[in-house]
Design a binder for these strands. Sequence first.
DNA 1: CTGAAAGCGCTTACAG
DNA 2: CTGAAAGCGCTTACAG
Lengths: 331, 331
Amino acid sequence: MTISEIAKMADVSPATVSRFLNGGYVSEEKKEVIGKVIRETGYVPLNAGQHLKNKKSKSIGVIVPRLNSEAIARMVDGITKRVNGTDYQIILTNTDNNPENEIENLKFFEFDKVDGVILSATEVTDELIKILNRYNKPVVIISQNIENFFCVYNDNESVSYSATKHLIEQGCEKIIYLGVLEDDSAAGRDRHRGFNKALKEYGLKPVAEKIVDFSVVGGYTGIQEILENQKIEDFDGIFCASDNIAIGAINRLSFTKKKVPEDVKIIGVGDSTLSKAFLPSISTVHLFYEELGDQAADLIIDILEGKKMPIRQIQLGSELCIRESSTELNK
Amino acid sequence: MTISEIAKMADVSPATVSRFLNGGYVSEEKKEVIGKVIRETGYVPLNAGQHLKNKKSKSIGVIVPRLNSEAIARMVDGITKRVNGTDYQIILTNTDNNPENEIENLKFFEFDKVDGVILSATEVTDELIKILNRYNKPVVIISQNIENFFCVYNDNESVSYSATKHLIEQGCEKIIYLGVLEDDSAAGRDRHRGFNKALKEYGLKPVAEKIVDFSVVGGYTGIQEILENQKIEDFDGIFCASDNIAIGAINRLSFTKKKVPEDVKIIGVGDSTLSKAFLPSISTVHLFYEELGDQAADLIIDILEGKKMPIRQIQLGSELCIRESSTELNK
DNA sequence: CTGAAAGCGCTTACAG
DNA sequence: CTGAAAGCGCTTACAG
């Protein structure tokens, strides 16, 4: 089904059908006929033809490191929902956690495959910055804040600041930090900063700081090492850079005499399904991942639709979710 | 950067560059020059041009009901990873759980946007079957088994059969079924069948059967109603159609005298991150979601590449994961 | 082995 | 208000 066939059926030229589709001048009379034919056939113009002519693919490339992460899946969910109903398509690529693939996908998309890119960057490497600096189409970075580029990200410093402050207000004075590699500037560096900021404000020092995997096992082995190798047993609070880490920590503590939250208060980050369902439920900080994806899609579409706008860094707020793991109120 | 520019740089015709790219006859000499230019420029042919000429979009449409589900995200992860390195692209659409959007997306893709479709169907409605029957391009259905179509799905009946059998072998005789709507033929109907089959085999009858939401809250309120409204208190096992439901059930039981697994043994389905991390860890059945996505992508690519193959229903096996919630061995 | 030409489906400036 | 024509980037049968 092509525009010419539609034209023939409506007894007009392809040009007129195209005008009908694109809001050009068409007489009411012909509008009616063409409209009818299109409705009956369900005709949708072929992207490729438009693309060639218009130099617009009407596609947005979305590059993610993986999808089996609740945070990323939620963001992609937000992106795809926002794009529904527009005439843009999402082309999704999965770099399988390999930063090299990230670069490669960016280069690939540069060849007019897409009009713009939403990139969920893992590490902000020099090479990445170099490519972004000379990139020939708009890019919106999600969940990392890179200066001088369009970004939508969580304010990770205030996330961990408010979480840590909450622990302190609950009476914790000997707090452990279980975080992830600082290479990850969002979840690693910024959350560490917020943690330190809160402690400093109250004149406290961390009892232990450990870099672990972004997982339940990470939290488990982190506490394990602190208990067994570092022989630290005197602590009353744990800030965890993710809910999974928090759950791992609680799991490890269940083999000790320390009760959560009576003896040790714990807080995570992310407000995952897990954090709500766990026993005890995990205090955490809600991050607006769907909204983040939504905003990113919104932004890239605005840019693609030609709205002139200065570089913009959209920092999303967060919400403290106080649950059982940090309070004795419940149960 | 177009093929003509590359041609000019290599001092040959566009036709020759095209031949180089597509494995036609090119002299060694020219091959070398063209190869060099392409390497230096990083040139990648524009899809749209090829599409118009070849009648192939080299795109695969993936329709999912949502992404904020671990199972679906894992499947999409498998699909995208399988497609990496091929010259196919994934165009992802999210129907936001609306079966009407499912149909609409299918129709949309029919207009040559994609060469084939991977569809994660929610409900197998008559309208869906009707569309599939007259669909003009290959479709692979995932996670549902629809007769006469290419499908990749989990053997849900044997999943619940083996899970239930496990409960019985652990000594359970008064078992509750917490399942989901039978409209979902995979997770609803088939898992119910497997449950009944196992009970029947041992001459048992369910103590209660409840249809609940596919969520933690569903499991919680399900048990709540059984306890409070149906006044059923005499049970020793619960089969749950998902891990989330299982966790909800355990959460509700934590407010009673019944201990898991001492008094009540519980098993879920899905082997979610949650099920491993929960305390007690949830016995469950591992479903190979990544592999399911991988297989589906494999299948559609084979079809698109012209491998003649009869309709094929690929049923994936599963693996019982015995953990704490159904055994007294641990702890 | 190589190039000129035609044509895929679309849109838009141009002439009427 | 409408149609014929040109051209976007590609590929392939054809002629050489």
